[in-house]
């Protein structure tokens, strides 16, 4: 199966939950966001969320995410 490798540069993408560009513009909803730590008695701070291309098998390489990412943090390579 010809599937792409989707990488996110976490040095550039530091607050995906406030941005959500890729999640809301990908036509196939390839991206998901999750927390890297869970705390008792408080919510996970925004900088501890990471976005990644879970459903990369649905990606057709349209590059909407690559071109639109305000931090230029995403690359899609086949």
């Amino acid at each position: 199966m010809a599937v792409p490798k989707i990488t996110v540069d976490y040095g550039k993408c530091t607050d995906p939950l406030s941005c959500t560009f890729c999640m809301n513009h990908c036509p196939y909803s390839v991206f998901i966001v999750g927390e890297t730590r869970v705390y008792k008695f408080r919510e996970t701070p925004l900088e501890e969320f990471r976005v990644y291309g879970r459903y990369y098998d649905r990606c057709d390489g349209c590059n909407v995410c690559v071109q639109g990412c305000p931090k230029q943090a995403i690359s899609v390579t086949f």
């Binding site: 998901i32 966001v33 999750g34 927390e35 890297t36 730590r37 996970t44 990471r50 990644y52 879970r54």
Partner: peptide, 18 residues
């Protein structure tokens, strides 16, 4: 599980779907 969480396992059944 403790405090560390795997962001790639987020969502119901997330780890399995990966």
């Amino acid at each position: 599980k403790g405090k560390e969480a795997d962001p790639q396992a987020a969502g119901m059944g997330g780890g399995v779907i990966n």
